[in-house]
C-alpha cells in the first residue's frame, strides 16, 4: 500500500480511536495496537526482499557486523512499539521501563563488536 493510502488510513483509524476514547478508553488502546501491528506487518513485508539483497552486498566486507546492526534495529523497533503504546495508554512509567530494557538489549547485542574495536585500537596504538 502506498504511503498516501496508509496515511489516510491512519488518520481515519485515529478518528475512530478518539471516538471510542470518550466512553471506554481500553478499546481506543486496542484499536491503536491493532493499527500499529497491521501497518508494521505491511511495511516489514515490503522490506523483506531488500534485506536479502543487502546481505549479498555486504558479503564482501565483514558480514558479521551487519547482523549485529540488523539485530539492534529489530530490538529498537519492537521496543519502540511497546513503549509508545504504553504512552498511548497513559502509562509513562511502564513506557520508560520498556525503553530502558530495549536500550540495554541493544547495548548487549553490540557488545562483541565494541570489544573488538577496542582490541583493534589497542593493537594499532601498540599499547
Amino acid at each position: 500500500m502506498d504511503i498516501l493510502g496508509l496515511g489516510a488510513c491512519a488518520v481515519f483509524i485515529a478518528a475512530f480511536a478518539s471516538l471510542l476514547k470518550k466512553q471506554n478508553r481500553e478499546y481506543a488502546l486496542l484499536l491503536a495496537v491493532c493499527a500499529v501491528v497491521l501497518i508494521l506487518l505491511d511495511t516489514l513485508g515490503q522490506l523483506e526482499p531488500y534485506l536479502t539483497r543487502i546481505e549479498e552486498l555486504s558479503g564482501i566486507q565483514g558480514g558479521e557486523y551487519l547482523s549485529v546492526m540488523l539485530k539492534a534495529a529489530g530490538i529498537t523497533v519492537s521496543g519502540q512499539i511497546a513503549s509508545s503504546l504504553c504512552k498511548d495508554a497513559g502509562e509513562n512509567s511502564i513506557a520508560y521501563g520498556v525503553e530502558i530494557a530495549s536500550k540495554t538489549a541493544v547495548l548487549l547485542a553490540a557488545f562483541p563488536v565494541i570489544s573488538k574495536i577496542f582490541e583493534l585500537l589497542s593493537k594499532a596504538m601498540g599499547i
Binding site: 501491528v37 506487518l41 516489514l44 522490506l47 547482523s67
Partner: peptide, 12 residues
C-alpha cells in the same frame, strides 16, 4: 505474526 516477522527479518 508481527513478532515472528520481526524475528525472521532482523535475525533476532
Amino acid at each position: 505474526a508481527l513478532f515472528q516477522a520481526i524475528k525472521s527479518i532482523f535475525g533476532l
